[in-house]
Amino acid sequence: MNIFRLSGDVCHLVAIIILFLKIWRSKSCAGISGKSQLLFALVFTTRYLDLFTAFISIYNTVMKVVFLVLAYATVSLIYFRFRKSYDSESDSFRVEFLLVPVAGLSFLENYSFTPLEILWTFSIYLESVAILPQLFMITKTGEAESITTHYLFFLGLYRTLYLANWVWRYHEEGFFDQIAVVSGVVQTIFYCDFFYLYFTRVLRGSGKMTLP
């Protein structure tokens, strides 16, 4: 454990809690892509199956369980409890365009051709693109509430900090997880445009982030 990884995990947790509380307190999931949240729930489910096969640390186990619970709680808020506020018309990204290539790639490029490893690889690839329905939705509607942009900021910051973690681990431990690193770079690139808008519009202005 190093400071980059710990702060990355904290940012990830903060992002998920921000989104959950935003929906819970406003009793509305307007502007939130249910598809992205479903994909994240799928990411956690397929990645954390090793909860049943390997014990790494109490921290690792607790965080995995918390992420899983919060992911499914968020999905259930969007699709059940506050379904009336869900804007399914704007959430029109075709997720099969992500799922099919990601599934194919995880069969082709993995560390070990076993069910658990393929699912882990699938989760890493899927995570790198899971935010696209949300970004697509913002592009389509042309705006996002500032609380939604804070969520995206922390979510983007999390994988960016993991990049620093991987550099650190490579130098300190000789540890290099090629699949995670390449996917993490791809994932971070998707946030670059958003980061720019976040700093120039949300933090300097107030209220919603509107696109030009």
Partner: peptide, 10 residues
């Protein structure tokens, strides 16, 4: 060192 039986990162 890669361990196929578990991943220590989240």
């Amino acid at each position: 060192e890669y361990d196929v039986y578990g991943h220590d990162e989240l």
